[in-house]
Deep mutational scan, measured.
Amino acid sequence: MPEGSASLQLAVGDRVVYPNQGVCRVSAIDVKEVAGQKLTFVTMRREEDGAVVMVPEGKVLAIGVRKVASAE
């Protein structure tokens, strides 16, 4: 991610809310080559049905992904 860009610090195992998809758990953060460029992807699995969603790390905030609020 370019320096100075806002990002959401995620780790494998974090629970997040993905708008219009529901609650997901981060299952992987991997670098993949797409069209000759190396990009970091956040892979999330929906808790409702296990569907897998992959989002480029740089788009996580723009999409509206946020961490699940704690009970505290």
Rank of each mutant, 00 (worst) to 15 (best):
I29A: 01
A6T: 11
L10K: 01
G36L: 02
S27L: 15
V12A: 02
R15D: 02
T40P: 02
A71T: 11
K32E: 05
Q21G: 15
E3V: 12
K32A: 07
R66W: 07
E47P: 01
T40W: 09
E48V: 13
V42N: 00
D30M: 11
V60C: 04
K32D: 03
T43E: 05
V65L: 12
L10W: 04
E48F: 14
S7Q: 12
C24E: 00
G64P: 05
Q9N: 11
G58V: 09
V52A: 06
G64C: 09
V53K: 04
V68M: 09
E47N: 02
N20T: 10
E72P: 12
D14Q: 04
K59T: 13
S27D: 12
L8H: 08
T43M: 08
M44S: 00
L8A: 08
D49Q: 02
M44F: 15
V68G: 06
V55Y: 05
P56T: 10
N20C: 01
R46W: 03
A35R: 10
G50E: 03
L10E: 01
V17G: 02
V23H: 05
S70H: 10
V17A: 06
Y18H: 13
G64H: 07
V17Y: 15
V12S: 02
T40V: 14
A69W: 06
G58M: 09
V60N: 03
K59H: 14
V31S: 06
V53M: 14
P2A: 12
S27K: 06
V17P: 02
A28D: 05
V52G: 03
A62Y: 06
S27N: 05
G4Y: 08
M1K: 13
G4I: 12
I63C: 08
V60Q: 03
K32W: 14
E72T: 11
Y18S: 04
L39H: 15
V53S: 04
Q9R: 14
G13P: 00
V16M: 03
G13H: 02
K32Y: 15
P19R: 07
V16T: 01
T43D: 00
N20P: 11
E33H: 07
F41V: 09
L61M: 09
R25P: 00
D49H: 02
G58N: 15
R66F: 11
V65F: 06
Y18E: 02
S70C: 11
G13L: 03
M44L: 14
L8Y: 09
L39R: 07
A62V: 09
G4M: 11
V23T: 07
T40Y: 07
V31R: 05
M44Y: 03
T40A: 06
R15W: 15
P19T: 04
A11M: 12
V68K: 06
V23K: 03
S27F: 14
M54T: 13
G58A: 14
K59F: 14
V17W: 15
V12D: 01
S5I: 12
L61E: 10
V53N: 02
Q37V: 13
V60Y: 09
E48L: 14
V12M: 02
L39T: 10
R15L: 15
G4H: 11
D30T: 14
S70M: 10
A28K: 09
V16W: 03
D30I: 14
T40I: 12
V65H: 04
V17H: 12
R66H: 14
V53Y: 15
G58T: 14
R66I: 15
V26Y: 01
L39M: 13
V55S: 03
V26L: 02
M44W: 02
G50P: 02
T43W: 12
A62T: 07
E47R: 02
A11T: 09
P56K: 05
V16Q: 01
E72Q: 10
I29Y: 02
L61N: 12
L8V: 09
E72L: 10
A6C: 04
V52Q: 06
V55E: 06
L8P: 07
G4W: 07
K59E: 15
V60S: 04
M44T: 00
K38W: 13
S7C: 03
E3L: 10
M54N: 05
V42S: 00
G58I: 10
P19A: 09
R66S: 10
D49R: 01
S5H: 12
K38C: 02
R45D: 01
V17M: 13
D30K: 08
L10H: 01
A71D: 13
I63T: 08
E72M: 11
D14G: 01
G58C: 07
G36Y: 03
A35I: 03
E72S: 12
R45C: 01
A11G: 05
A6Q: 13
G50N: 07
Q37H: 08
K32Q: 09
A6G: 12
Q21W: 15
E48A: 13
E48I: 14
N20V: 05
F41W: 14
E48P: 04
M54R: 09
L10Q: 00
S5N: 11
Q21A: 09
D49E: 02
K67Q: 07
S5C: 04
S7L: 12
L61C: 05
V42I: 15
I29W: 02
I29F: 07
K32G: 04
R25C: 00
E48W: 14
S27V: 15
G22S: 04
A28Y: 05
D14F: 02
E47I: 07
V68R: 05
R15P: 02
A71E: 11
F41E: 00
V65K: 04
G22R: 04
Q9P: 09
L8C: 01
R25W: 11
F41K: 00
Q37C: 02
R15C: 00
G13A: 01
G36F: 03
A71S: 11
V68H: 06
G58E: 15
V52M: 10
G13T: 01
V26M: 01
D49L: 03
I63V: 11
A11D: 05
E47G: 02
V31T: 10
I63Q: 10
E33K: 06
R46G: 03
M54L: 08
G4Q: 12
M54C: 04
V31M: 07
E3I: 11
D30W: 15
L39E: 08
I29T: 01
A69D: 12
V23Q: 03
I63H: 11
K38H: 07
L8G: 08
Y18W: 12
V12R: 02
Q21M: 15
R15M: 13
D49T: 05
A69P: 11
E48K: 13
L8R: 07
K59Q: 14
S7P: 13
P56L: 13
A28N: 07
P56H: 07
R66P: 06
V26N: 00
P2K: 11
V12G: 00
V65A: 06
E48D: 09
G36E: 02
T43V: 14
P2F: 09
V42H: 00
F41C: 00
E57D: 05
G64T: 06
A51Q: 10
V23L: 13
M1A: 13
K32N: 04
V16F: 07
L61A: 14
L61W: 09
R15F: 14
T43G: 01
V65E: 04
M44V: 02
M1F: 11
Q37N: 08
G22W: 05
E48Q: 10
M54Q: 09
E48T: 13
S7G: 12
G64L: 12
V68L: 14
A35M: 10
V17E: 08
G22T: 05
C24P: 00
R66Q: 13
V17F: 15
Q37T: 10
V52W: 08
T40N: 05
K59W: 15
Y18Q: 02
L10Y: 03
V34A: 04
M1E: 11
N20L: 09
D49G: 04
I29V: 06
G58Q: 11
R45N: 06
A62K: 08
V31G: 01
A35E: 13
A51V: 11
R66M: 13
Y18I: 14
